[in-house]
Each structure stands twice: as C-alpha cells, then as structure tokens.
C-alpha cells in the first residue's frame, strides 16, 4: 500500500511540475521545473527497483542535460518570454490535441494485454550487476556503437560552438 501512495505522490508532483514547465513565463523556471520532474521520475525508477537507471537518470538528465539547458538559457539571456506566445487558438488546438492523444494512448495501450509475470519491487533485473552483465554480454555492439555516437555528438557540438565560420 505504501508504494501506491508513494506512486501517487510522485506522479502528482511530476505532473504538477511538468505542467508548470509549460506555464512558466520564465525559461529558467521551466528548466527548474523540468529538473524537478526528472527527480520524481528517478523516484519512479527506484519504485520499480531499477536502481541503476534511477542513478543514471539523475546523472544524465539532472546532472548533465538540464545543466546544459540552464547554461544555454543563461548564456542566451532568454529571461523574458514576452514576445514568444502563440495565439489562444493555437493553444486551444494544442490542448485539444494533447487531450485526444492522452485518451488514445491510454486506449491503445490498454488494448494490449500485457502479461504481468513479476513483482516490480522484488525483481532483480534493475540492479547494476544484472544490467551490466546483459549490457556487456548481449548488447556489447550497440554499447560500443553508442560511444561512437557520443564521440560524433561531441565533435559536432564543438564544431557548432566554434565562433568563427567554417
């Protein structure tokens, strides 16, 4: 029962902050709300006993990605959203589309009969040891390839960041 309450609490915080990401006028606030969302998601991961993912999630998303966002916002000095706002019609359409999508997603996902075979709180697959074994044994090639992806992303980012024209 405890975990259900925790789930509901985390979800509520997550959705609240996710909505606030959109509602905040100031991009910095958006970024910070986003970070909060990510922390609650990390909580969700722990709830699912996916410890490794939880920590990696914090390191990658909160520790790296959102810091990058913060950096960008600060460096570009985008404090005011002012002129950035869509017409109310667009917002209305967006809301309708989002709502539709929400319903359809639930509907289509529910129509799948997902067989539950284990208790997420006791499952051991999320531990570093197990995930690591699988990652380095069965998924070694994609793992190595992802490092190449990173390298190229790094090179690309550096190239983009260079001031002078190429």
């Amino acid at each position: 029962m405890f975990s259900t309450y925790l789930f509901i609490f985390l979800s509520a915080v997550a959705i609240f902050s996710a909505i606030n990401v959109l509602l905040s006028k100031n991009p910095i606030h958006s970024v910070l709300y986003m970070t909060l969302t990510f922390f609650t998601l990390a909580g969700h991961y722990i709830l699912l006993n996916a410890q490794f993912l939880a920590v990696v999630h914090v390191i990658v998303y909160a520790g790296a990605i959102m810091v990058l966002f913060l950096f960008t916002v600060m460096l570009l000095n985008l404090n005011k959203e002012g002129q950035f706002s869509k017409t109310n019609l667009m917002k209305f359409i967006a809301g309708i589309a989002g709502g539709l999508l929400f319903l359809l997603l639930i509907g289509s996902l529910k129509s799948f009969d997902v067989a539950v075979v284990s208790n997420p709180e006791l499952t051991q697959i999320g531990l570093v040891k197990n995930l690591g074994t699988i990652l380095y044994r069965d998924y070694l090639l994609p793992f190595e390839l992802s490092s190449i992806l990173f390298l190229s992303a790094m090179v690309g980012a550096v190239m983009l960041g260079k001031k002078d024209k190429i």
């Binding site: 410890q51 390191i59 790296a64 810091v67």
Partner: peptide, 25 residues
C-alpha cells in the same frame, strides 16, 4: 549501504551545480 554508492556520489556531485547556478542567476 546502497550497492551503487559510488554512482550515488556521482549523482549527488553532479547536481551540486544547481545551487551555485541558481544562486548566481
């Protein structure tokens, strides 16, 4: 005694930036 203590440290250290950045901004 979490079995990913070292990773936990990474995570905590990596979010240490926020305090400084938020305060400065």
């Amino acid at each position: 005694d979490i079995n990913i203590g070292v990773l936990y440290t990474f995570a905590v250290v990596s979010i240490g930036v926020y305090g400084v950045m938020i305060g400065g901004w």
